[in-house]
């Protein structure tokens, strides 16, 4: 695994005496080579979330993305990337993920997640019809239109 010494590359880091307990110190190396997702989940007591789409990325919490991983994620995001971006992103995103690895060492057992900070429940309005933006005004920005609809390429085979 590629393991750049973040603290050496970047001048910013937190003072040693203010590093929260349970996290790596700013100069300690990252240790994730042998940590698998399964082991991690077991330690945390949180069951791995199951999804039906199989991922070609092995379930190992590793910090380097290969160009093949980049292809997979780009396909999930419907994002075309150039061959040059494919290689560059693999390198740059690996660096960013390494930096995030410190989070994994934090003990968050029993901590509920915060999706957004306000204590809001569903905000509903009265179910009453009201005027909307005229169709013609919306279609002014359409790349292609036909008979008052957006025109797109065929989705299904003819």
């Amino acid at each position: 695994m590629r393991c750049t010494h973040i603290a050496g590359r970047y001048p910013w880091r937190y003072p040693n005496d203010h590093q929260p307990s349970g996290t790596r110190g700013p100069d300690a190396p990252l240790h994730f080579e042998s940590g698998t997702w399964g082991a991690y989940a077991k330690n945390e007591g949180t069951p791995g979330r199951q999804r039906v789409i199989p991922s070609p990325i092995p379930l190992v919490l590793r910090m380097n993305l290969t160009p093949k991983d980049v292809d997979h994620v780009a396909a999930l995001a419907r994002l075309g990337i150039t061959p040059e971006e494919r290689a560059r992103f693999a390198d740059q995103l690996s660096g960013v993920l390494e930096h995030f690895a410190a989070l994994q060492a934090l003990d968050t057992s029993g901590v509920s997640p915060t999706a957004q900070v306000q204590d809001l429940r569903n905000v509903m309005r009265d179910d009453v019809a009201r005027p909307s933006t005229p169709r013609d005004a919306i279609l002014l920005n359409a790349p292609r239109q036909e008979d008052g609809f957006f025109r797109v390429q065929a989705v299904l085979d003819a």
């Binding site: 379930l59 934090l106 915060t114 999706a115």
Partner: peptide, 18 residues
Amino acid sequence: SSGYYDAYYRKAQQVRTL
């Protein structure tokens, strides 16, 4: 993405609480 949601997104939302 599949298998990473808890390790990343859920974890980050927990740290957000802290």
